[in-house]
């Protein structure tokens, strides 16, 4: 039976909707390097700050509701994958639990890194740029970062942060329904950034952001592996 004109249009929109959902699965990365970055020499001591992950469900109305169970799963999977990838490199490393390091100067440095990371995301990856930061990728925690190096006998610190949201069943149904009417509706995604800080100078020597669709799902080991692989791609480690 030949589809009527409306059926053809609906089929076309169905294809577009499916394409949109599939496109969400693509992973993109965007790396920034400090001017004259120094690659950690073989044997450099690196601390891995336990990944900071927060995952949420995207409801039909578009509200994000944090999910502690998903967050725990995602954090565990990402941490395991970061460790697995670091084992393959010629450096010594140790994972630190940020909750144990939040006191005193080290805690201030970890919090400062959060502010620096947010600033990088705003002005190097956001819609606006700062004229005072236009010349080069030049971000730092200051020489006080040596306190972190001394406390953990480390030369560099690697930070990984991830945020993700996943569409609920109702949200997916809404997305497909509205796609047929020609309205695009986000169905979730994940964003992850990683930064490498030289603990002697405090400089952020490397920074990368990976955006993935909901298919590279960090709640699953395979998805976390894809995401970590993407975000650590080109890391000078």
């Amino acid at each position: 039976m030949q589809p009527g004109p409306l059926g053809g249009v609906m089929r076309l929109w169905g294809v577009i909707a499916a394409a949109c959902l599939l496109l969400g699965a693509c992973t993109t990365t965007n790396t920034k390097l400090a001017a004259n970055p120094t690659k950690p020499p073989a044997g450099a001591r690196i601390i891995l700050v336990e990944p900071d992950i927060e995952l949420a469900v995207l409801t039909a109305s578009g509200v994000q509701e944090p999910r502690a169970d998903w967050t725990e799963q995602g954090r565990g999977n990402v941490a395991a994958e970061v460790e697995r990838q670091m084992k393959a490199r010629a450096h010594t490393y140790r994972m630190i639990d940020p909750n144990e390091a939040m006191g005193g100067r080290t805690g201030q440095l970890l919090r400062l890194h959060e502010a620096v990371g947010q600033s990088i995301m705003m002005f190097n990856y956001g819609y606006v740029s700062l004229p005072t930061k236009a010349a080069s990728f030049d971000w730092t925690l200051g020489e006080g970062a040596q306190a972190l190096g001394t406390a953990y006998e480390a030369d560099y610190a690697l930070f990984v942060h991830g945020r993700g949201n996943y569409a609920s069943g109702a949200r997916v149904a809404t997305a497909v329904g509205l796609a047929i009417l020609g309205v695009g509706v986000p169905v979730g995604g994940q964003q992850c950034f990683a930064s490498l800080v030289d603990l002697k100078t405090g400089r952020v020597v490397w920074f990368n952001v990976a955006n993935t669709g909901p298919n590279d799902d960090m709640r699953k080991p395979d998805g976390a592996a894809q995401l970590v692989q993407a975000v650590l791609k080109d890391a000078p480690l």
Binding site: E50, D52, E54, N99, E114, A115
Partner: peptide
């Protein structure tokens, strides 16, 4: 630590 991003969000906002 995990609350930091959330805490910074209002500033970012």
């Amino acid at each position: 630590m995990r609350t930091i991003f959330r805490a910074l969000a209002p500033l970012a906002a």
